[in-house]
Simulated scan of single mutants.
Amino acid sequence: MTLAAEKVDEWTVDTLDLDAYLGRIGQDRAKPSAAALRELAKAHVLAVPFENVDVVLEQHKGIALDDVIGKLVRRHRGGYCYEHGSLFAAAAEKLGYPVRRLVARVQPQKNGPYTHMTLAIEADGVQHLVDVGFGAGMLVPMPLVDGAVVDQAGWPHRLVADGDWWRLQKKEDSDWTDLHAFTLTPMHRIDYEVYHHYTSTHPRSPFTGQLVVMRLEEGLSRKLVGTEFIVERPDGTKETTPVPPERLDATLRELDVVLTEEELAKLLTIYRG
């Protein structure tokens, strides 16, 4: 078996029905290119919600690719970074893109956790940061070029090289804020299993104690965090509205998260405290 074959086997890429995935995000097969990668990533972010409902319900089945496909593709649900990242990486590889699976330290200026899955994908001979699982963050890929600034749905983002590290930054007012930092060291599947275990079970994880659902589109960021619905726009305007239990289902549906009656009932019990 070749080294390349071993790598593909580690991630069980052949598990993915590429046509089913492309149907889920409304895309056709296209020859690998930077432009095609941009459209693929954008379509994924627009179609698949970022959400942690299964973590809150303590019913997450794990991040094996087949489980991710069952949830995000077959059930039309969303997920968080390990689910988005592993699904997009598999699709990109099946389409012919070289993919490197990475991990990032969130909010490095605050000693945030080294737990976020992100991707480096080559297109037209250039490495790109592709981060489809960073909540209401990135909409399109960014070339891995020091100082590169890319508009992300109306919010400028920048990549800065710092030795072996890369920092993803977002412009807020006149300042650049670090969102996460990463190296190009490739991860193994077991690494993400460890990160996922912490993220989905540890009491200090930001995903175990409250609902987090995020959607991003051009000029609009919508989030349900805990019991608050937050709408933000690139001009700096922000609207925060409390979400009472009787509005939870409608708010989730507005964010494209549709639960079964059993899941909703269990979630409401937790939501009411």
Rank of each mutant, 00 (worst) to 15 (best):
D175P: 06
W165F: 15
S174G: 12
S200F: 08
T208P: 07
L211D: 00
S221N: 02
D164A: 12
L220N: 01
R222M: 11
H188K: 15
R204D: 14
I230M: 02
G219S: 07
K170A: 14
R222P: 00
A181W: 03
L216K: 01
K170N: 13
S174M: 14
S200M: 06
L216Q: 01
G226L: 03
E193N: 12
Y192P: 06
T177N: 13
S205M: 03
E228P: 00
R204F: 10
H202V: 08
H196Q: 12
L179E: 09
H196I: 05
H188I: 13
L224H: 00
Q210D: 10
M214R: 02
Q169H: 11
H188Q: 15
P203N: 07
F182N: 05
E193Y: 14
S221P: 01
L220C: 07
H196G: 08
W166V: 03
V212L: 10
S174P: 09
E193A: 12
L179K: 08
R189V: 10
F182M: 09
R215E: 01
E217H: 07
Y198E: 05
G163L: 08
M214T: 02
E218Y: 07
S174W: 13
L211I: 04
R222H: 04
D175M: 13
R189M: 09
F207R: 01
R215D: 00
V194G: 11
P203R: 09
R204P: 05
V212A: 06
L168Y: 05
L211M: 05
L168W: 04
P206I: 02
T185E: 15
D173H: 14
T185L: 15
Q169P: 04
D191R: 07
K170M: 14
P206H: 04
S205N: 03
Q210P: 06
G209R: 12
A181E: 09
W166E: 01
D178L: 07
H202Y: 13
V213M: 01
K223I: 00
F182S: 06
T177M: 12
R167G: 08
G219V: 03
D175E: 15
I190M: 15
F182P: 00
R189T: 07
G209A: 08
T183R: 10
S205R: 01
L224Y: 00
R204H: 12
E172F: 10
T177S: 14
H197E: 13
D178H: 09
G219Y: 07
P186Q: 12
L179W: 08
E218C: 03
S200D: 10
E172N: 13
E172R: 12
I230N: 00
H197C: 13
R222L: 11
D191V: 05
R167E: 14
T185K: 14
S174E: 14
